[in-house]
């Protein structure tokens, strides 16, 4: 299969060269604002005290864990429907980033839970469904590299990504459907957010910064995957070529 033509590493390189300064720059600027406002220029909570500052890494990491997974599912669908090699490569490139954000969400949540709830962990619907999301990421990564031909791994893991997408609404609505120790949504509500503006600034700055960071890293990682496949193809061609020469 001549996938080079479709994925066109040269075209992608041009695109990513053009986007890189904006995505990396955006990440640097917004994360700097987020760190400054989150650690210094925002008040302590009247109930939670200084632990509220954990929110500025925990909540954006949680949003990213789901946003990256949504991207993974879309890439999986594109890989299955159009067999677009760029979609296959994108899924493989972003899955570890999503897993890392989910890991951060779980650990920072635990660090927040201990002082505020009195426990590191509880098997409630929100925490459990996010833990499952983490395992789905790991399963995706394992399945993706479990085959000798990268195409087969890409297709198998794409199916897993689509099936696993059922977990996204479960995570989102878990706090409404079940009685959870985890609080319900306080930002994405129909009425105004139940968080003071002084705390919304660091929260959104970190979330936007994480998003730009994800885009920049995704560009780098997709480029690396494309190079890796090209390298593989060249080596195969070279081995095949030298065999012919030896036979002649």
């Amino acid at each position: 299969m001549n996938w080079h033509r479709y994925a066109s590493p040269a075209n992608f390189k041009r695109l990513s060269d053009r986007l890189m300064p904006w995505t990396a720059g955006g990440a640097a600027v917004f994360l700097a604002i987020g760190v400054w406002t989150g650690l210094f220029a925002s008040p302590a909570d009247y109930q939670q005290g200084e632990t509220v500052r954990i929110m500025y890494v925990h909540v954006p990491a949680a949003w990213m864990s789901m946003f990256v997974y949504a991207n993974l599912a879309v890439a999986g669908a594109a890989a299955l429907v159009w067999r677009h090699p760029l979609a296959e490569v994108a899924g493989r490139a972003i899955a570890p980033v999503g897993a890392a954000f989910t890991f951060l969400c779980l650990v920072t949540g635990s660090l927040w839970g201990k002082p505020m709830w009195g426990t590191w962990w509880v098997w409630d619907a929100r925490l459990t469904s996010v833990l499952i999301l983490f395992f789905v990421y790991l399963a995706y990564m394992a399945l993706n590299s479990a085959f000798d031909e990268p195409e087969r791994g890409a297709r198998a893991s794409a199916v897993l990504a689509l099936v696993g997408a059922i977990n996204l609404p479960i995570i989102k609505f878990s706090v409404d459907w079940w009685n959870t120790l985890h609080q319900p949504a306080s930002i994405t509500r129909l009425d105004a957010p139940a968080v003071d503006p002084s705390m919304l600034v660091p929260l959104f700055a970190m979330a936007v910064g994480f998003t730009f960071f994800f885009l920049a890293v995704a560009l780098v990682r997709i480029r690396a995957e494309l190079l890796e496949r090209r390298l593989e193809a060249l080596r195969h061609a070279r081995v095949a070529g030298s065999t012919i020469v030896e036979r002649a």
Partner: peptide
């Protein structure tokens, strides 16, 4: 405010994970 053992690990771990990715 007495919560250093929870706030700092959360931020430092986030920084380490983001930087290493």
């Amino acid at each position: 405010g007495g919560y250093a053992a929870f706030v700092w690990p959360a931020w430092i771990l986030s920084a380490v994970v983001v930087a290493s990715i």
